[in-house]
């Protein structure tokens, strides 16, 4: 947080002003930022800025993630689901097979069910590790998200985000880390496979910088 910077400039300001600033920063960090992070995550936009009163919040994805977007694995197209019946398979020549070998680590955040509106364009689907992660399916079955937890809500590691129904037996989908619930990558009622990416989690601990002083107070995503 911008505690230090705030203090340096706060000499001429009253204690009430400072307390108000702290309240505002706290509100930004706790309420506005998580919601914005979720929005940015779901939108595919590269940058987002919101002004409110004296404060301005700008969120930006690192440039590297934009470059990486083209490499999102072909897995996005061969996720089996009811939405894609009769998927016609892939190239049958050995060379085609070789070309299509995405590295295991390079599997991108993606969905085969068309749940994301901006899929396919320049949507930056990968973020560097540590910014965003994803809750995956524990089993093959039908996905049902929790309806009482909406994108933008804080979740803790281990929190239940929904379930995958395996022959009538629900298997829990849990948040792998603390963070902010992002977009759902599949619809409720969709067929999902083991390990399929289901719900984005924007990682907690992303800092927001708040600056005191009325002139150009900007809280930026570091």
């Amino acid at each position: 947080m911008a505690e230090g910077a705030g203090r340096a400039r706060s000499g001429s300001r009253s204690k009430t002003d400072r307390l108000a600033d702290h309240d505002a920063i706290e509100r930004l960090a706790d309420e506005l930022l998580p919601a914005l992070m979720a929005k940015l995550g779901a939108s595919g936009l590269g940058e987002m800025e919101v002004r409110e009163g004296r404060w301005k919040v700008r969120l930006r994805r690192p440039a590297s993630s934009q470059e990486a977007s083209g490499t999102s694995g072909r897995r996005s197209t061969d996720r089996p689901s009811r939405a894609q019946p009769g998927h016609a398979g892939h190239g049958h020549s050995p060379s085609a097979v070789e070309k299509h070998r995405p590295g295991r680590e390079a599997r991108a955040v993606s969905s085969g069910n068309g749940a994301r509106p901006n899929d396919g364009a320049s949507a930056p689907e990968t973020l560097p590790a540590g910014r965003r992660t994803v809750a995956t399916s524990p089993a093959v079955g039908i996905f049902h998200p929790r309806t009482d937890v909406r994108p933008g809500a804080w979740v803790r590691a281990g929190d239940r985000l929904g379930s995958v129904d395996v022959l009538g037996v629900p298997q829990e989908v849990v948040a792998p880390v603390d963070g902010v619930l992002g977009a759902s990558l599949v619809e409720s009622g969709d067929a999902v496979e083991y390990g399929q990416e289901l719900v984005l989690i924007e990682l907690a601990g992303v800092t927001s910088g708040g600056q005191g002083g009325g002139s150009s107070g900007a809280a930026e995503d570091a």
Partner: peptide, 15 residues
């Protein structure tokens, strides 16, 4: 694996 790539559909069932 090749059967996964050549099948009409493939579905991951576990680790």
């Amino acid at each position: 694996s090749l059967p996964v790539q050549l099948a009409d559909e493939a579905i991951c069932v576990g680790p």
